[in-house]
Amino acid sequence: MSLIRLIQELSSGMLVTLEIFFLTLIFSLPLGLLVSFGRMSKFTPLRLVVKVYISIMRGTPLMLQLMVIYFGPYFIFKVNMSNLPTNYRFYAVIIGFVINYAAYFAEIFRGGIESIPEGQYEAAKVLGYSKAQTFFRIILLQVIKNVLPSVTNEVITLVKDTSLAFVIAVTEMFTLAKQLASAEVSMTPYIAAGVFYYVFNYVVAFIMEKCEKKLNYFKA
């Protein structure tokens, strides 16, 4: 199979991989921030529930979580799989990735928020900023600067983790490469997939480094 053909064959998978990647980030970053607030809440029941959720998300394989979310409606609620929307597979992947990554991001954000000195809040309070103004104007950018390196690590892991969608047969990049490799009896599709992930990560790392540089104008 020519390289052009191979790339054509793989391109629909690339698209799905990119979709998983971007949808996961778009939803898990803000959700992670909310979860981190829950994790730091003064309301103990909420704090404990969030703590358990985070520890399950971080303590079990994402692959298993994806399977539970996909097969859960059938095994737990006896929902007939044929009654589920046709792209439920894809939704299950997104849901799984989002709640998993939100847990990781929440812990990162919590560390970033807790590292902001109390004096920043006190100065803001004496100057009359509201709680929301204090968070969005004074605290948030400092937190973002603090957490950017850890977030970069997670985002790079996410690029590679997208391949886990194959366990519930969502045909992303890796699923297709696997199918092609066995049909053609050739390593080439795997190599092409490897190059794709590598280039993807290279771009991600490049962009994240640009963001870090952008925040170099101040030091905490």
């Binding site: 000195p117 004096g119 920043q120 006190e122 100065a123 803001a124 004496v126 100057l127 009359g128 900023y129 103004q133 104007r137 004074i138 950018l141 400092q142 600067k145 101040f218 030091k219 905490a220």
Partner: peptide, 26 residues
């Protein structure tokens, strides 16, 4: 107003912005 022992300036704001932000926003 209160002046702190360890200043507690906002590190991500320039000197001018540190001074004008609260009068403008608050």
């Amino acid at each position: 107003g209160l002046v702190f022992q360890n200043f507690n300036l906002f590190p991500h704001y320039s000197v001018l912005k540190n001074i004008i932000d609260a009068p403008l926003v608050v």
